[in-house]
Design a protein around this nucleic acid. Structure first.
Lengths: 345, 345
DNA sequence: TTTAGCACTCTATACTATAGAGTGCTAAAG
DNA sequence: CTTTAGCACTCTATAGTATAGAGTGCTAAA
């Protein structure tokens, strides 16, 4: 994408975007004239701004107001004009201390911390998609007898998931019998992703075990269920109230729609999943988003991974009037840290 | 608490409360005269209302407006005048189907379902305090070796909690060694509540085990930590966006304060814990609430239990203009169901 | 004790006037 | 050809004014 604006126009567009991001007010020609290094008059700026509007980079809310960037204007800014900020020491410290691999071994905890850090550093709403359970590979399966009639199934994946589920035995099982079953299952399932455990594979296993021990039917049904159930993935949210600080959400109705969206996890998941194919940081401005509910917002996402395997997506959601440079810098840093913390555990 | 109003005043107060709950508009004398069974004129009603205002049961927002109930008015209504509603079939079904003990064995799932049901049935925000981990008693402790250097500690309580934590071994442990440690710990800890596992007890155990096996130091530190960490209790929320539908929250600033509150779990916990001593359903109207942030709200709470041991608290939070009869009926039913579902598992 | 009647109060709504910000255009200057 | 000063014009936001309507409190009669 080559620049298609001359230098002066770029300077002016840049000025409008930066000013508008800061003040949330339409930017007038005088404001820009004052801050413009070249020392042009407001009339000149006005002409240029009129051009920029005609070209679709700026919008005039009404005849006697200043200009605000259009979606296209933001896009041009992000692609060609934006500077990345240095992270403030404050933010740098927050990220490195609260996400260090040190104490935390559970992946959920690391992710929850990340949402907190991300939303407080950006003043926006952050959303993070946890690792997809069904894309994780079996690592170990254990069954702990609790008493004569119940056992605890513990399932551990390569991505650090630990799932457990209480099951009822229909008949009493001896320690040895359990042992046999478990080691058989482990052998069969090792390395498969949850996705790959199809109904037919389960049936096959069931038949196999059935022949040996006729006791497990009930336990098996429950195990099967427990796998099915875990299809949903958690999306972690942080700073949902931050949108209330944005002047573009002073309308109660907009707030309601936004908060409603936040309560619908499956939708959030789809929104995040949609961008997770790409490797780098993705910026979706306004209607570039596929989902109706966020067509007035900007979503910036990045993916985090463990040993080069993509685990999930980190996102920041806010109005299109967002400090792109700042958010992107922060997200870069956070994703780096996340990758590092996860890989070292 | 004996009734201190004559019959007619009670009728009128009742009318005001019911009308105001329905319409959210100050209630005028004519409105009441129309619906009053005795067939009184508006002038008479006006006089009575003036009395009721002087006595502190009603409030006039401004001279030429109708009356609204004062906090005292609501209190009198709840104590003396309120009818409990029959549950609609719809709600009845929601409660009995989505909380039936059937499939769900994990307590967290039952509770999350409860918040959903409660908030959708009442159109208010629901909050439920999960069982307090630290008040739960040890049932079993297990350690599963994952590989040479790591193990999974699984802790099961009598209230159905299952906590797990990965720990690092500093040295390699044999199956038998682990077995010994675990059975020793189980013997020592069985039946104690998490609360009772004091630092000194842990130290004692540590010394004890240390003598036998010098290997466990690291593992112990981590176990200790994992117990400490679990001090926080989860408060589950449902229908937080429902407050946006209440006309008393049309002010963005109030919304912000409310949502902010919802994000502070420790505070929510305190708010709920505060009422959990009592056995029955507790109604806290307006400034009867101790906590500043909800002094304009009404909080209705009930406790749920398993085998006569109190597990946690269920709450509904909304404006003082709340359909008390309806919410209380729903909560009664829900708590009953909850007790039943939990006890049968 | 109740009620009809009426003057009075207050709010919400619509309408009007005004200041201020910013524009677009024209014509002169560089 | 580009830039700029100047000015008329447009639109919004704000304050001020008028009016209708709801509801009251009080008085005097039933």
């Amino acid at each position: 994408m080559t620049a298609e604006l001359n230098d002066r126009k770029e300077q002016i567009l840049r000025s409008v975007v930066i000013n508008y991001i800061k003040t949330a007010e339409p930017v007038g020609s005088r404001t820009i004239a004052r801050s413009h290094p070249g020392g042009l008059s407001s009339a000149t700026i006005r002409n240029e701004m009129a051009d920029l509007e005609e070209m679709g980079y700026l919008i005039q809310p009404h005849t006697s107001a200043g200009r605000i960037p259009s979606q296209r204007g933001y896009r041009y800014y992000v692609d060609n004009l934006m500077d990345l900020n240095e992270l403030s020491e404050d933010v740098e410290e927050k990220i490195s201390t609260s996400l260090s691999a040190g104490k935390m071994r559970e992946i959920e905890q690391i992710i929850m911390n990340s949402t907190r850090v991300l939303s407080s550093a950006t003043n926006q709403t952050s959303l993070i998609m946890g690792p997809q359970f069904k894309k994780s590979a079996f690592h170990q399966l254990r069954i702990l007898p609790l008493d004569e009639k119940r056992g605890l199934v513990v399932l551990i994946t390569d991505t650090g998931f630990i799932k457990n589920k209480v099951i009822d035995f229909q008949h009493q099982l001896s320690q040895t019998e359990l042992q046999q079953i478990v080691s058989y299952l482990n052998q069969k399932l090792y390395g498969l992703t949850i996705d790959q455990v199809t109904a037919s594979l389960i049936n096959e296993l069931k038949r196999d075990l059935f022949r040996r021990l006729e006791i497990l039917e009930q336990a098996f049904i429950l195990l099967e269920e427990s796998l099915k159930e875990e299809k949903q993935i958690r999306v972690f949210l942080g700073g949902t109230t931050n949108i209330l600080n944005q002047p573009e959400f002073k309308d109660v109705d907009k707030i309601r729609r936004m908060l409603n969206l936040f309560e619908q996890e499956p939708l959030l998941f789809k929104i995040l999943e949609d961008t997770s194919r790409e490797d780098n940081i993705v910026v979706r401005i306004g209607s570039e988003n596929e989902f109706e509910d966020i067509k007035e917002c900007t979503l910036i996402t990045g993916t985090y991974r463990i040993h080069d395997k993509t685990l999930g997506t980190v996102g920041v959601l806010g109005p299109t009037r967002m400090d792109y440079g700042k958010v992107i810098s922060i997200m870069r840093r956070l994703v780096d840290q996340l990758n590092q913390s996860l890989s070292s555990s």
